[in-house]
Amino acid sequence: MQIYLPIAEMSVNFVLIIGLGAAVGILSGMFGVGGGFLMTPILFFIGIPPAVAVSTEANQIVASSVSGVLAHWRRGNVDIPMGIVLTIGGFLGSTTGVQLFSILKELGQVDLVIKLCYVVFLGIIGGLMLIESINAWRQQQKAGAKRKKLHTHTWIHGLPFKMRFRKSKLYISALLPLFIGFFVGVIAAIMGVGGGFVLVPAMIYLLGMPTVVVVGTSLFQIIFVMINVTIQQAYTNQTVDIVLGILLLIGGVIGAQLGAKVGSRLKAEQLRILLALMVLGVCVKLGLDLVIQPADLFSLSQGGH
């Protein structure tokens, strides 16, 4: 049952890893969320060095995004020009992120920054998700929800370098998706997540893209950004553990299949509340670990010379 991870330099129970990968895969299949923001902290909890967890999860996200984007591609739900602009931003962002990661690793602060990022983002997502799903649940009780406006015009639409994005039915400055792509790229590199939870709302609310093309286009960007993160992490920090990666892949594939089947049969809104509570739970656990005084103030530096 034990398998030695050559890069993480530790031995783990491979049934446990595949099981965890499957559990997170089920959740992502059910809710259509990328599993990175749950899988990476779970890897921390079982003792995988955060640097290895983040880089290896990036590789795993490449796989899940490839299988996800193909389905959207077939239905023509990928805005390629928009995807390319986001990807350019994402490339720059993730390259910056990996360098930042490397500097933080040198300073011995990488674990702290990763965990702080998680506390902040999981707190925000979990909170928003909870509020949204409770509201949606309530509105189901009352009939006739109000329809929201597609998007409003703000100063954002006055920026230069305007480009036409046919599928998104948008004529906006390329700077905006470029910047969003960059920001998501930095987060992706540091946190080992696809960044869909930032990218998707940004595309809907900031760019005003139609929901139909949002998921496919975000997956398109995530694939290329995560490929960049994986190669750069492997090159700069040597923290991609392919053995762990393959275990996660196996679990993820099994889980996503099950999740999609289960998800179609269950009531989404109540489950969404559960997912939100889970996200908040992980957030609180990570947060407490940072705030509560550790039993021993001293610790061994992992792989540090």
Partner: peptide
Amino acid sequence: GIICVLIAIVAGYAS
């Protein structure tokens, strides 16, 4: 790194 990525792409396509 490139090989890791290729494995992931193939796995994603296969699934």
